[in-house]
């Protein structure tokens, strides 16, 4: 068996201290293998976003260990972590986080700019990513003039531009209507299928979660093992 891309071993995270201490994550283990798609499902406040942040090396766990391709993340230097996030990870957020009055192309090539790629290559790769998402004609528009679906496609183009191994998507369809949401979902899954990009989706949308290879349910900071994948495949009508 191959080494998992990311492996969380009983990781926990709490915020605040004393009376205000809040245990967001109380010990969750998960292995993520290259090329799979996995959904982290839970209600808001369940700790699912915290788990994603820890997996994406945006935060350090208080307990347990996180292995990146077998290496303990604690042993990675800051520079190496930045490189990983810049080149191996792509991020898609519910709120888009596009710079409103910069052009779509400028937004998309931000990771390349951070990586120190020259302007010519930046442009070429940015345009290629935009073409993939059928946004090439909007490259010069300001990000704020895009529709919701176009914005999320721009965000996906930004996540793709560095050819990442893993894409983290935090409620990627949360701000979109059903039709555009479905289009964005199709794009993400086709990237997973055609390019072998590992997909980690955080969502409370059971239907979206069901399209993933695997689901992890998080409830009150712990994995909810009572909800088997079978239960999802036959949603109990009223629950969904």
């Amino acid at each position: 068996m191959t080494v998992p891309v990311l492996s969380a071993q009983n990781i926990g995270k709490s915020y605040g201290s004393g009376a205000n201490r809040f245990d967001a994550l109380k010990g969750v283990s998960v292995d993520i293998r290259a090329g799979e798609s996995i959904a982290i499902v839970g209600k808001s406040g369940s700790g699912k976003s915290t788990l994603m942040h820890l997996l994406a090396l945006l935060d350090d766990p208080d307990s347990g260990a996180l292995l990146v391709e077998g290496t303990d993340a604690k042993k990675l230097k800051g520079k190496e972590v930045n490189r990983l996030r810049n080149q191996d990870f792509g991020f898609v957020f519910q709120q888009f986080f596009l710079t409103a009055n910069a052009s779509v192309l400028d937004n998309v090539v931000l990771p390349l700019k951070i990586a120190g790629v020259g302007p010519k290559e930046r442009r070429a790769r940015g345009m290629k990513a935009l073409e993939q998402l059928e946004l090439a004609d909007k490259a010069k528009n300001k990000a704020m003039n895009l529709s919701g679906g176009q914005k999320q496609r721009a965000v996906i183009a930004r996540a793709l531009v560095n050819n990442p191994k893993v894409i983290f998507a935090d409620e990627p369809t949360g701000n979109l209507d059903t039709t555009t949401g479905a289009v964005v979902e199709d794009i993400l899954f086709s990237l997973n299928r055609d390019k072998g990009i590992t997909l980690i989706i955080v969502t409370h949308d059971i239907d979206l979660a069901a399209r993933c290879d695997r689901q992890i349910f998080i409830r009150d900071g712990l994995e909810d093992v009572t909800r088997s994948p079978e239960a999802i495949e036959k949603p109990a009508g009223a629950h969904a």
Binding site: A56, L58, G78, K79, V81, N82, R83, L84, R85, N86, Q87, F91, Q95, F97, T99, L110, P111, I114, A115
Partner: peptide
Amino acid sequence: TREIGLMKAMGMNGGR
């Protein structure tokens, strides 16, 4: 704030 957060999430270090 969010833009800075995004850049840092994308691997920009504090010095930059």
